[in-house]
């Protein structure tokens, strides 16, 4: 299992700040729904492909693999519109979708997971006003990535143990012992984090010091 969809190449698209790329993607998502002329939509798709395949040098196969899951939807939508509305609407809907999915795939392939996590932490900064600490957002994401292989391994072990006792084919029987095991593990992990000072109060925000009377 590859744990990232990043394609390591040196290109201007790769070097662009992750926040900028995400901002552009969000703007594109809004703009595409305001466009209802086919040439404009087709031109946007061409521009996205040019940026991805040309400027960023993402292999065509990688891009295609990311777009593949939406193919069935494209076909269903196109057929629906050919039958119910007209070909123009159908083509527009499909172009919009393809453009957005391709653009998102380009951003994903040219931006490292760590950079995107940093953007998530940055986006979480306003939440500090309601008591969320951005650094802990990063900690939770790191723990999630570590837990994935660990849970898969525990599940495998429990299935083996059940099979050794003659229990075959009870696929969902794994869930309860697995959940109890990993819940205890998470409980212990939380205590270990606290023991290392992870629950220490956050340093007070700077503006509070400035606002206090001399």
């Amino acid at each position: 299992m590859t744990l990232s969809l990043y394609v390591p190449v040196a290109s201007p698209v790769h070097r662009a700040p992750a926040g900028l790329k995400l901002g552009l993607l969000a703007a594109l998502a809004v703009a595409l729904f305001l466009v209802d002329r086919l040439p404009v939509a087709a031109g946007t798709l061409a521009a996205v492909l040019l940026a991805g395949l040309g400027a960023a040098r993402i292999p065509g196969r990688t891009l295609l693999a990311q777009v593949r899951p939406v193919w069935p939807w494209l076909v269903v939508l196109l057929v629906f519109h050919l039958v119910v509305t007209d070909w123009h609407t159908g083509a527009l809907v499909v172009l919009r979708l393809l453009t957005l999915v391709a653009a998102a795939a380009v951003v994903t392939a040219t931006t490292r997971v760590t950079e995107l996590v940093a953007v998530v932490e940055w986006l979480a900064r306003p939440l500090a006003l309601v008591g969320v600490r951005p650094a802990r957002v990063g900690l939770v994401i790191a723990m999630t990535l570590r837990f994935v292989p660990l849970i898969a391994e525990r599940a495998h072990r429990i299935r083996e143990a059940q099979a050794a006792r003659g229990a075959t084919g009870m696929r969902w029987g794994v869930l309860v012992p697995l959940l109890i095991q990993v819940l205890r593990l998470a409980h212990t992990l939380g205590e270990a984090l606290d023991a290392r000072g992870a629950d220490a109060p956050a340093p007070p925000p700077r503006r509070r010091a400035a606002a206090s009377p001399p």
Binding site: R136, V140, F147, I151, H187, E191, L193
Partner: peptide, 12 residues
């Protein structure tokens, strides 16, 4: 911290 671990656990 325990709650954070639980959150990460169910995401995983």
């Amino acid at each position: 911290s325990r709650d954070l671990a639980y959150v990460a656990l169910f995401a995983a």
